[in-house]
């Protein structure tokens, strides 16, 4: 097996890694915002529910959550939720989205609560509705403030995707383990590092650029 073949196989696996990464972001960011509203809600049962969920998800290993999502429905209820060729990928996606939504929700909560109360009062005086206040006044300020912690989570997510291999999702580490490591080829393991370094490098540049674009009120 030559360098070219190995690159193609690893790229295949990295495709799955990227897909898992992107889809997780797409679904977990909005879900995280909803959970953060839930945990800030004045309706106590809802805020307790959300905070308990966040506690459980942040308090248990992601690997365990992958097992629970993929195996438990079938074992306890006899339901095959994730069947077919994409079943394992979907199960991993569900686990990742729930997990990351909880982490994001706390970042959002921190960001939203950091905006001075006076701004809400000022908006009210100007006759803005709660919705208008949030979307036109508060949200962009929050985005600016939370960009750095979000970038941290996003970069962690890139590397966390490798955990999906515990339920045999064909991401890059699984491909490597099954096709190369098991045959005694060790160097592809270090080759994989290059994939991640490049990907995270691009993300870092992207976040740096965003931060610059958003720093328009700084003198």
């Amino acid at each position: 097996m030559n360098f070219w073949d190995i690159s193609v196989k690893l790229l295949d696996g990295f495709g799955i890694t990227c897909l898992l990464f992107i889809l997780t972001l797409v679904f977990s960011l909005p879900l995280g915002l909803i959970i953060s509203f839930g945990s800030m809600s004045k309706f106590k049962p809802l805020s307790w529910l959300c905070r308990t969920v966040v506690w459980i998800i942040r308090g248990t290993p992601l690997m365990l959550q992958l097992f629970v999502v993929f195996y438990v429905p079938g074992m306890l209820f006899g339901v095959r939720l994730f069947t077919g060729d994409d079943g394992r990928f979907l199960a991993a996606l569900v686990a990742f989205v729930i997990n990351y939504a909880c982490y994001f929700s706390e970042i959002f909560r921190g960001g939203i609560e950091s905006i001075p109360k006076g701004q809400y009062e000022a908006a009210q005086v100007l006759g803005m509705t709660a919705r208008e206040t949030f979307f036109t006044v508060i949200m962009m300020q929050v985005v600016k403030r939370i960009l750095a912690p979000i970038s941290n989570e996003v970069i962690t997510l890139v590397k966390d995707t490798s955990l999906a291999r515990v339920i045999a999702v064909g991401e890059i580490f699984f491909v490597n383990e099954m096709d190369f490591l098991s045959r005694g080829l060790v160097w592809p393991l270090f080759y994989i590092a290059v994939f991640f370094l490049v990907f995270v490098g691009v993300l870092t540049l992207l976040f740096g650029w965003c931060e610059k674009k958003l720093s328009y009120y700084k003198v």
């Binding site: 097992f67 993929f70 195996y71 438990v72 429905p73 079938g74 074992m75 006899g78 095959r80 994730f82 069947t83 079943g87 394992r88 515990v166 339920i167």
Partner: peptide, 10 residues
Amino acid sequence: NKYMELDSGA
């Protein structure tokens, strides 16, 4: 994980 895979129907 083989028994878990089997019992869950995976």
